[in-house]
Amino acid sequence: MSASPLSETPFPAPALAPKVAKIIVTKVFVRGLKVDAQIGVYDHEHGRVQPLVIDVELDVAASHCEQLGDTVNYETIRTAAQDIAAAGHIDLVETFAERLAQACFDDHRVTRARVRVEKPLALAPHAAAAGVEITAVRG
């Protein structure tokens, strides 16, 4: 009786295969960051703060991260968003998103930044939120 074709394997044993592929990009993200900002183009939006909900996803040229200094600290994203909000009135969420993306590029390891800024009250109660999402790449 001959052996079953299913019992024969043409592939090398798993022990011969590489154990770990080289990591080329680490994604660092913050989701649902809440920041109060003076933002908006309408008269009723001037002189008051509104909540923003921010998502940031960064591509970071980092691998084999063993210590906090090996990667981007989430706190720097939160601090940058708060600093932008504290700097004064901004007309557009697009401007806020662009400034936050630029702040993320202060870390030389960041190669791409995706920033989403939502204004939950912009179309309330007709919509859960309105906003913008941008993607920026290091030039």
Rank of each mutant, 00 (worst) to 15 (best):
A87C: 04
G88C: 05
K19G: 00
D36T: 09
S4V: 05
S4P: 03
D36A: 15
L100K: 06
Q82A: 14
A113F: 04
F96D: 02
H108S: 15
F11R: 03
V30A: 14
V28C: 08
A17L: 14
P5T: 06
A15F: 07
P12G: 04
T9L: 09
S4N: 14
L68C: 03
D43W: 05
A97R: 10
H126W: 12
V56N: 06
T79W: 08
T111I: 09
N73G: 06
A13K: 12
R48I: 07
I84A: 02
A17E: 04
E45T: 02
K27R: 13
S7R: 15
D91Q: 13
G131S: 01
Q82L: 14
I90G: 02
I54Y: 01
T9K: 07
T26E: 13
E75S: 07
C65A: 13
F29G: 00
L16S: 14
V115H: 09
A17V: 09
P12C: 07
R48H: 02
Q82M: 12
F96L: 04
S63M: 08
F96R: 05
R48M: 03
A17T: 06
A130F: 00
Q102R: 12
V49W: 09
V30D: 04
A80D: 10
L121I: 02
K119I: 01
N73L: 00
V20N: 12
A127Q: 01
V93Q: 10
A21H: 11
A127M: 01
A61K: 13
A97K: 06
Q82N: 10
D83P: 03
V60D: 04
V25W: 11
P12S: 13
L68R: 14
E133P: 01
T95E: 12
F96N: 05
V53T: 15
Q102A: 12
L6A: 15
A80C: 08
A124N: 02
Y42A: 10
L121Q: 08
L100C: 08
F29W: 09
V117G: 02
T95I: 11
H64K: 07
I134D: 10
T95Q: 15
L16V: 12
K27D: 06
A61T: 10
S2W: 06
R109K: 12
P125F: 04
H108C: 06
Q67I: 10
L33V: 11
E94W: 02
A122L: 09
R138S: 15
V41D: 04
Q38H: 03
R109F: 12
I90F: 07
E133A: 13
P125Y: 05
G40W: 11
R99F: 04
Y42C: 05
A3Q: 11
H126C: 02
R78V: 10
L68S: 11
V25A: 10
E98Q: 13
P51N: 11
A87V: 05
F96A: 03
V117D: 01
T71N: 03
E66R: 14
S7F: 06
H108Y: 09
T95M: 11
L92C: 07
V93P: 04
V25D: 13
Y74M: 06
A61P: 08
P120C: 04
R109E: 11
R116H: 06
V25S: 13
H108F: 07
G88S: 08
Y74K: 04
D55P: 01
G131A: 00
G47I: 03
S2R: 10
E98I: 03
V25K: 14
L68H: 05
A86P: 09
E98S: 07
A124L: 01
N73I: 00
A127T: 00
E98W: 05
